[in-house]
Design a protein around this nucleic acid. Structure first.
Lengths: 331, 331
DNA sequence: TTGAAAGCGCTAACAG
DNA sequence: CTGTTAGCGCTTTCAA
């Protein structure tokens, strides 16, 4: 690999001149500039990232924490990561996948300090409780996607708006007895969505068709199935069901099918997430689409302008509705 | 952040002594060692990765190409990446997510040269055709997961063994008229699996129940549905169907259901991939499980011992069978 | 408009 | 066992 020094020697100029050309400084004659650029191009010059990082004390690297979590979420994590990566690249940043093994001694923050990483995007992590604060304590900016608890450093879909969208869709189809299958009530997401439901039915003076004592912590098919049965047992009739996830919705579909209820003729169903799942179930699932691209892009934009020490705002991204075959006008 | 120089000053020793202690060299007295280590520990010393990279001309960074591809495969990519990351960390390596935008000028290989990356793991990429050779031309070792074409630098499930396992399972359940739903015949994976089927039926003198003219290039539900209908139209009776993917198998399930055939009473079905899907369809899908953990781990182990210039062998990982509810003994 | 020189934090001969 | 010295590739004053 060729170095700045080499180019300087060949061009018969000093190292500093080459450096200036390469960095686009203006105080270099056009002639010199052209000569240097030509040589660099021709010799296939590639800057040494380590040398630059060392002298600038800055690496242009963003850390990403992306551990496999359980559940289906991996599907959209990769889309978010993709959008994040594109935005990072557009801003001249490279992504490092942080890794904190129990056997090795390296913690996330050590890797950050070692690589001069100032910002970390937490997509998913097993041990959410301490990671964020540990990083912040070392002066590192953090943004967490869909955290368990509310935080100033979160980025997420605007869950209240999103669930309202789901309910509005059903409402506008003429449904009035709209049941709700909540997610985990121990999480920020789950609580927000429930709040959205409660707000909505209150506003529109609809009956409250949900069972407060249930918390569907794993968002599983079985939970969706059981909750649906409980709803149908407890409430005389149900026009539609709004679910907190597509997987819960699938459980609802199975429960309805087992009771010989037709979807959407008898009951309309709305999912939430817009997983690939929606396209392959029968009937295809109407759902709430989270804007994965925007989530990733905004996460990056925001992280780069964030300051670890100042007060930050959570970032909420609007969702949209996708109508497929599991919903229809009330007869 | 504290530096080696600082520690040296405080400990009243030279920089090189500190360096030796930190790097575990033996030619340092226990006393000095203890003193230095204590200070480093207490002052929270973290080595500067850039400085080390610069002086050693080696970064201990592995590149990963992980772009969102279409299809369901994203589901297990993250598991493989996870295993890969753990193994990398155990060997003292960090992962960089390579990114090659059309707008920016930075190519994959430039990023590698810049960061002194010697090895790249290609999990998924949009433009598979040129990436591998471009990297290799720059002296970078490459390993590609499930490439489109056969190559010395591939890592994949042993597809022939895997599909044989699927067929053996059905055979041992007493099925003899075993149909096959192939995948894309334009890819290495698709061709291997078909070969596995042809070998097996020849060996066991079974009828060939597959339609050579079909290539299911997108591994979609619809393709599975259509192929199943074609099979049932063309062949008098079918005991079982071995599919090249879980999604194709789902299409087969729908087709059978629409023809009022029961699964597994009338027809047994084997999927391939062991996606989460298998657990949530009705009936739950028996399938071939790819060893994602081993794929990721071996990819890393192997990549680190690979040499870009020498001849390398493809890596094939054995699959296993998972029995759920879509298969049963022939009556 | 150009160049000389210093130095980022670290390692690696080599000499003592 | 310990220290001196040079230098990795680059940027950045500062002087010319």
């Amino acid at each position: 690999m060729i170095s700045v020094q080499e180019i300087a020697r060949i061009a018969n100029v000093s190292q500093s001149t080459v450096s200036k050309v390469l960095n686009g400084y203006s105080d270099v004659s056009q002639k010199t500039r052209d000569k240097v650029l030509a040589i660099a191009q021709q010799m296939g010059y590639v800057p040494n990232a380590a040398a630059i990082s060392l002298v600038k004390n800055k690496s242009n690297i963003i850390g990403v924490i992306y551990e496999v979590a359980s559940g289906f979420s991996n599907l959209f994590f990769s889309s978010i990561l993709e959008a994040f990566r594109m935005e990072a690249e557009a801003n001249g940043y490279t992504l490092i996948l942080l890794s904190q093994n129990t056997t090795s001694q390296k913690t996330y923050w050590m890797q950050c300090l070692s690589h001069k990483i100032e910002s970390v995007f937490i997509i998913s992590t097993r041990d959410q409780s301490t990671v964020e604060s540990e990083l912040k304590n070392h002066g590192i900016s953090v943004l967490t996607l869909d955290p368990m608890k509310e935080s100033a450093n979160l980025i997420a879909t605007d869950n209240i708006q999103a669930i309202r969208l789901s309910l509005e869709t059903l409402y506008n189809l003429g449904h009035r007895r709209i049941a709700f299958i909540q997610g985990s009530l121990g999480t920020y997401i789950g609580k927000s969505r429930l709040m959205g439901y409660l707000d909505f039915i209150k506003e529109h003076q609809l009956p409250s068709l949900y069972i407060p004592s249930i918390s569907n912590d794993s968002y599983s098919v079985q939970e969706g199935y059981d909750t649906t049965n409980a709803l149908l047992d407890q409430f005389a009739s149900v026009d539609a069901i709004a679910c907190c996830s597509d997987v819960l919705a699938l459980g609802a579909i199975y429960a309805l099918q087992d009771r010989k209820l037709r979807i959407p003729e008898d009951v309309s169903i709305m999912g939430f997430d817009d997983l690939r799942l929606c396209e392959i179930v029968r009937p295809k699932l109407s759902t709430i689409h989270q804007d994965y691209h925007k989530l990733g892009k905004m996460a990056c934009e925001n992280l780069l302008t964030r300051n670890a020490s100042t007060q930050n705002q959570p970032i909420l991204v609007a969702a949209s509705v996708v109508i497929r075959a599991s919903t229809r006008k009330r007869l």
